[in-house]
Amino acid sequence: DHWEIRVGDITIHLKDVDEEIIRWVEEALRNGDDLEEIKRWVEEVLR
């Protein structure tokens, strides 16, 4: 699977990601969370 999350001008590409993570990231972006923080979290989860 390949996911693209778009929020404003930001697009995040994710592969082999659980839908729950996608929802979490979308929510975090909508809440204005720091992008670097989100990326770190996702990388942590995917490890």
Rank of each mutant, 00 (worst) to 15 (best):
K39I: 11
T11E: 06
E4P: 03
L14N: 01
K15M: 10
L29W: 08
E37W: 14
H13F: 14
I21Q: 02
L14G: 05
E37H: 11
A28Y: 10
V42F: 06
L29F: 08
D1N: 15
K15V: 08
R47Y: 01
I12T: 02
E36I: 07
I21L: 09
G32R: 09
E26A: 15
K15N: 08
V45S: 06
V17T: 06
V25T: 01
I12C: 02
R47T: 11
V45Y: 15
H13V: 12
E27N: 14
G8S: 05
R47S: 11
H13E: 09
D33W: 15
W24V: 04
V45P: 00
H2M: 13
H2D: 06
I38H: 00
I10E: 04
W3Y: 07
W24F: 06
R23N: 04
I5Y: 04
E44Q: 13
D33C: 14
L29S: 01
G32N: 06
I10G: 03
D9K: 06
N31E: 03
D16S: 12
L29T: 02
D9C: 01
R30P: 00
V25N: 00
E36N: 08
G8T: 03
V42H: 00
G8M: 06
D1W: 14
D18C: 06
H13M: 12
E26L: 15
I12S: 01
E43Y: 15
I22R: 13
D18T: 13
E37T: 12
H2Q: 09
D33Y: 13
D9S: 11
E27F: 15
K15W: 11
D18Q: 10
V17P: 06
V7G: 04
L14R: 04
H13Y: 14
I12D: 01
W3E: 02
V42W: 05
W3F: 07
V17H: 07
L35P: 10
D1Y: 10
L14M: 07
E43Q: 13
D33I: 15
R40Q: 05
G32D: 04
R23K: 09
V7Q: 04
W41H: 08
E43K: 09
V17K: 08
E36M: 09
V45G: 03
E27L: 15
L14I: 07
L46Y: 05
N31F: 07
V7A: 04
V25A: 04
V42Y: 06
R40L: 05
D18R: 11
D16Y: 10
V17M: 12
L46K: 02
D1I: 12
W41N: 02
W41T: 03
V45T: 07
D18S: 12
V25Q: 00
D9W: 10
E20D: 07
D33V: 15
R6H: 06
L46I: 07
E37A: 14
E26D: 04
V45L: 13
K39M: 14
H13L: 12
W41A: 04
R30A: 10
L29N: 00
V7M: 06
I10T: 08
R6T: 07
G32F: 11
R23V: 05
D16K: 08
E36K: 06
W41P: 00
E26V: 15
D9L: 10
I22H: 04
N31L: 10
R30W: 07
E43W: 15
H2E: 05
L46Q: 03
I10F: 14
N31D: 02
W41E: 01
E4D: 04
E36V: 05
I5T: 01
V42A: 03
R23G: 02
I10L: 08
E43I: 15
L35N: 04
E43L: 15
W3Q: 02
V42G: 00
E44W: 13
D16G: 13
D1H: 13
D1K: 13
V45F: 15
E19R: 10
H13A: 08
T11R: 05
W3V: 05
D9H: 07
E4T: 10
W41F: 08
L35T: 05
E37K: 13
R23Q: 05
E37I: 08
R23T: 05
N31W: 07
E36P: 02
K39S: 05
I22S: 04
D33R: 15
I5D: 01
R23C: 01
E43C: 15
R23H: 05
H13G: 05
E36F: 06
W24C: 03
K39G: 03
N31S: 08
L46P: 00
D16L: 12
L29I: 09
I5P: 00
E19F: 10
L35Q: 06
L46F: 07
D9T: 05
L14K: 03
E36L: 08
E36D: 09
D34P: 11
H13S: 10
G32K: 05
E37G: 10
E37S: 13
E26T: 15
D33Q: 13
V25P: 00
R23S: 04
E36T: 08
D34Q: 11
K39D: 02
V45E: 09
L35H: 05
E20N: 12
D16I: 11
I5A: 01
R47V: 09
I38L: 07
